[in-house]
Structures are given as C-alpha cells and as structure tokens.
Design a protein around this nucleic acid. Structure first.
Lengths: 160, 160
DNA sequence: TTGATTCGGACAACATCTATCCGAGTATTA
DNA sequence: TAATACTCGGATAGATGTTGTCCGAATCAA
C-alpha cells in the first residue's frame, strides 16, 4: 500500500500558494518544486475538481486557493488526489465457501472490516488535524521565517 | 491507495487456523473461504516467510500458526503481506528547484513527511491493538460461539 | 522404495500509477 | 474589435505493481 506520489507535490503547491497573491500557473509551480510540469498539472486539476483551488484561464491565469489555509486540511488534499474510497474493501469472504453464513446473519459488518475501517479512520483523523496553515508555519520554523516571503517574491517575479 | 486484497484472505486464514489442531493445506483453506487456491498459496508463503506460520511438507502437511493467537496482531499480518515499507515516501522536494534549501539545513525531516508519518503510525497503532484472538472471539459473538468449532470439524474432516 | 501430496518460486494477464501531448477557452493588447 | 499569446482540460502512451496461474523440488506416509 503506497500513497500516490502526487500527494507530496500537491501539498507543497498548497503551501507555496499561500505565499502568492494572484493566480500561479502550473508550469511555474512545477519549476519551483523541480517536478514534471505536465504531470503536476494533472494533480492540480484534481484539486480544482475537489474545490480546493480555483483555476483562472487566459494570459495572467493560474491557480488560486479557494479557502483560507486554516480551512484546508491535509486530508482534503489527500482525498482530492487519491479519491474518497477507503483503503480496505471487504469482499464478504464469510458469505462464501461450504460454511458460508447466511446474509440474514450479517446485520453487522465483518470483524476484519471493522478493524481495518477503524484503523483507516485513525489515519484520516490524524491527517484532518493538520491544516495547510500549520504546514506553512512549520516550514517557517524549520527553514527560517523569510522562506515563504522568498517563495512569494519568486512567484511574482517575471519570467526571464 | 488501496490495501492488497490478500490481506483479507490472510486474516481469515489465521482465524480459521486457530480452530485447527494439525497442519492445514493451502488448498483446503482456499476451499473453505471460496477464494483462488493458487493465489492464496502466494500469500500463505509470505506469512510463512514472516515467521507467523510454519509450513510442513509431505502427505499430511500444511500450515500451522507458530505463535498463540494472542501474540499475533493484525499489523503483523498486514506487514507480512504488504511489506514493511511506509505508505509515504518523501522525495525531498524542498531540496529541488531554484529555491532549494541546502542539505545542511535539513537536519529535521520535511513537515509533510512528518505529518504523513504520524498518520501512518496512528494507522499501524490501531492495527497493532487487535490480535487474532480478538478477531476469533468477535466472530464467535457475531455468528454464534459454535462457528469456530464447526470450522475446526470441517478442517479435520477427510476429503470426499 | 514407491508414491502421492505438499510447498516454493518462476511465469503471464491485468490494473493502476506515472508521464506526456495537443486541443478548447480566455484575458490581454494592439 | 480582432488578433494573439497564454492558460487549463481531458484524451493518450509507458512504467510499475498487483492479481492470478502454472509446474518443478522437497517431504512425509505407506
């Protein structure tokens, strides 16, 4: 079970966008982070479809966060990229084979499904407690408070 | 991010093995659960490599749990099937691009990696708290206390 | 010694993730 | 107002990992 690599790029983009005032094109975000521009575009589209950011087309277009960084959680980004489906899908093995239990006796879900779902919920709860604003302030603590300002300046600077 | 479907089969097999006294062949476990025999064998091999069960070859061979059900956690089974790798891998995006931070300033791991790793730990902690013995007793509560006994009888009964 | 039965790893088919391209649409600008 | 340059968006190939299958090597019972 490996998380899609696009999640990492998407989270970095969200943090970077908090330092920008206007729309930022996907190509510029890709250059800033040193990742494939065309592939990053795919993930930004997913974030746009999920309503986390809003895209403006045309010459001075790009992506803008729709909500304030405090109101966007890491879980929002993960679910936008990975889809809302749970990590575990129960195939009802208990209802198969020679000793299958009848559907009438399956009012509660299978124990294994309950266990995996509980773990899934714990995972999601941990991701929901961290917002983009939290990430941004932590980046400031880790690498200096002016890092975000430098990113903002670079995003605003014209192309060579 | 979807969990391998083999995890579900493997957990059901572990519970069933607690009802058996001697070794149980993979083909029989597959028939009991109504899953592909050759594919289930692959997962049982993984459990064997991980040391959770021990295989005996020959005519009356099969698989046996090496430890008591209380000492095998759901996490043990998941890691045996999925491998020990974490769900998230950090590619150090912060060290790339025109505003890359120098490796000297990366004494702590990236915030995003810390967040994802914390969520991963919460997930694993939830899985570690449930043992195969817990699953077995829950199955008894859900479908009657004699279910495990019937499974044991079926496993011991000769082939037609 | 024979023989049947078992596990074990090597071999294809499928799905998903990764990466890329070109067309549709829009604000700028002359 | 019309041209234009720039943007997003979905449709299109390649790489990686998962699912499913097969047959040989080893083992124990008879």
């Amino acid at each position: 079970m490996r998380l899609s690599g696009g999640v990492e790029s998407a989270l970095h983009c969200c943090v970077a966008l908090t330092a920008a005032d206007g729309p930022v094109p996907a190509a510029r975000l890709a250059e800033l982070h040193g990742v494939s521009a065309t592939y990053l575009a795919k993930h930004l589209q997913a974030l746009s479809r999920a309503g986390l950011m809003h895209s403006v087309q045309g010459k001075a277009g790009g992506y803008v966060l729709t909500r304030s960084p405090e109101e966007i959680t890491v879980l929002d980004v993960v679910e936008a990229i990975e889809g809302p489906r749970s990590t575990f899908v129960c195939t009802e093995i208990r209802q198969r084979g020679p000793l299958a239990v009848s559907p009438d006796d399956c009012t509660v879900s299978c124990v294994i499904a309950r266990t995996m779902t509980a773990a899934d919920r714990a995972w999601r709860a941990a991701l929901r407690e961290v917002s983009i604003a939290d990430l941004r302030s932590a980046v400031g603590e880790d690498h200096g408070v002016d890092v975000l300002a430098r990113i903002g300046d670079w995003l605003r600077s014209p192309l060579p």
